[in-house]
Design a protein around this nucleic acid. Sequence first.
DNA 1: TTGCATGCAAATCCTTTGCATTCCT
DNA 2: AGGAATGCAAAGGATTTGCATGCAA
Lengths: 164, 164
Amino acid sequence: MKTCCDHPAHSRRLIQTPLAELTDQLRRGSRKITAPRQAILEVLRRHQHPLTNKEIHLALGAEECDLATVYRNLRTLEEMRMVARFDFGDGIARYELAGMGEEGHHHHLVCTHCARVVELTECLPSQMERDIAERHGFSQVTHRLEFFGTCSRCSAAPSLSKPG
Amino acid sequence: MKTCCDHPAHSRRLIQTPLAELTDQLRRGSRKITAPRQAILEVLRRHQHPLTNKEIHLALGAEECDLATVYRNLRTLEEMRMVARFDFGDGIARYELAGMGEEGHHHHLVCTHCARVVELTECLPSQMERDIAERHGFSQVTHRLEFFGTCSRCSAAPSLSKPG
DNA sequence: TTGCATGCAAATCCTTTGCATTCCT
DNA sequence: AGGAATGCAAAGGATTTGCATGCAA
């Protein structure tokens, strides 16, 4: 499988939306194209696996902006649906560049020992969400689904494994 | 449907494991039967829908113990699998008394406007988890699944709805 | 008796916010 | 120009932890 970056702990198919298209989305949302914003989008484009605010901030390197700006922008980008937020159960928000519509939707399998993350293509049976919405009179129903377990490396050497 | 308490925002089937059985589980886990511990279990038994640490602490009433003790106990109970922790995406842990084994496993449908919570009986296709585990060489795979949407009351009067 | 559990207070960590300033559009 | 975005510092809120004391086994 083609991997998104050097990080051996992650593997997923590449989306690689051109930066120009991302800035267009900002424009269409009446958001200003600022240096921090572009830098953050570049980081997300380079590392297409779930990143925390802190990790994004670190990855900015020379393009560094304030950590608060990272938080503010990720929130904005989430509202604009340009990024997707994931919850791995540790109380820390993680973000990924969102694919267009349905194509982008996916879930993860997370190793609870070494934090290795595998992107999954599987999802719920398509009618399940609709059934649940209808049965309980809810609208605009979405879901959050993540899998957790122990990866092969960690079951082999429980204490030796390190992320990456 | 039989409801677990007066709270109109929640409805679920009752489990009502006897307190004696719960304290037995503590004993089997070599945990001491203390007043705070029993009081917390009583609260969880009375309100069988997801509660935050703070809510549990409030519900203790006269049996009040320190909030830190609530946190410590919920963590312990989670490790012992006596309670299940849920993530509703707001960064606050919520707990429910766990049913025995498979029977207890369930998911929720949460209204993102008024926080109404509906317990669901639906779950993933039973082989899906096994397939994913096998395909990626993971063991002991579990999952977290929650649904979010707008309940009928909130779509009718978006701004008037209040929890409960 | 013996250590696990608790209370209290302080510390952590993630995240948000107020405000003056900067800078896209 | 004018409003949105940023930097900086401080605040907020959930959760954890150190330590002396208390209590179940």
